[in-house]
Write a protein that binds this DNA or RNA. Structure first.
Lengths: 144, 144
DNA sequence: AGAATAAATGAGAATTATTCTCATTTTTTA
DNA sequence: TAAAAAATGAGAATAATTCTCATTTATTCT
């Protein structure tokens, strides 16, 4: 597992206990967590106000991806690799969020479309996000 | 413009003034609005609690699409046509949200990928959402 | 390593967004 | 048109997030 202290010093921010704990909690999970889930995982070892502050700090140094689940609750995940472009699959039964990679053909087709849309709307498009919604049929330990 | 009273009675819910006003405010706009923008548009003609209730009512009868903007604020739009499948383009300068249609080739490629992912994760995938982020370069009246 | 400086933290207050309660009003039923 | 059902407004309650500030911790500079 990556070294949380290293991550912080690499990004030239001070290395503090709450930051280490938050990063480690996120590193332990393969998939994104809601703020509540993260708070529970940290078990009061980090004050609520500090948790929100730390999340904002991680956003500032661009190692945190933040989005919302279908219930509009904020969800976060660490983004450490440069090549970590991925998307998300949400289960409406258990709330699980799974990181997914799309195939090259998809990303190529999307790039073409994006060029078309940039012209059509006179936009410069810098990023995109794809979210898939469904139900995990029987493998998930949370779904009965 | 569509008739808001008709829309409500078609969906077998009672036709009330707040519902009519909310639907008309949403119909006037081509593009999605945040709850605040909607509230401002309605200028206290609908109580805040009623606005939220009406939005929930419209969700229940499946004519409201709800998602979040990059600041995680809730955004809503009416979904009246069956064939209205579309996606969204967000401007990070002015906050504008534009409805976009992707070409057939894109949706075909996406369908193929979805089939692959359904097998890989043993999921049944029912819906998807694509969000594009960028800046409108000079056409928007809000961007200087 | 230790003192001085700068930055971060914890606790809870403040703010904001959303939901809930309930007496009154409006709509629907028939 | 009367009775029954449903929706509304106003504000209280709740939940999520940010802010404040005195104290603690980390960094910097000898």
């Amino acid at each position: 597992m990556k070294d949380s202290k290293q991550i912080l010093s690499d990004h030239k921010v001070s290395v503090t206990n709450p930051r280490i704990l938050v990063i480690e909690a996120l590193l332990e999970n393969n998939n994104p967590l809601t703020v509540d889930e993260l708070q529970i995982k940290l078990k009061n070892k980090v004050a609520k106000s500090t948790l929100y502050r730390v999340l904002n700090d991680l956003k500032k140094i661009n190692i945190l991806n933040e989005f919302t689940n279908p219930e509009n609750a904020i969800v976060v995940e660490l983004l450490l690799e440069d090549d970590s472009h991925h998307h998300h699959l949400f289960c409406s039964d258990c709330g699980e969020i799974i990181d997914i990679q799309m195939g090259d053909e998809f990303e190529r087709t999307l790039s073409k479309e994006i060029k078309r849309l940039e012209k059509k709307f006179n936009f410069s498009i810098e990023d995109h996000r794809l979210e898939l919604f469904g139900k995990c049929t029987d493998l998930c330990e949370n779904c009965s």
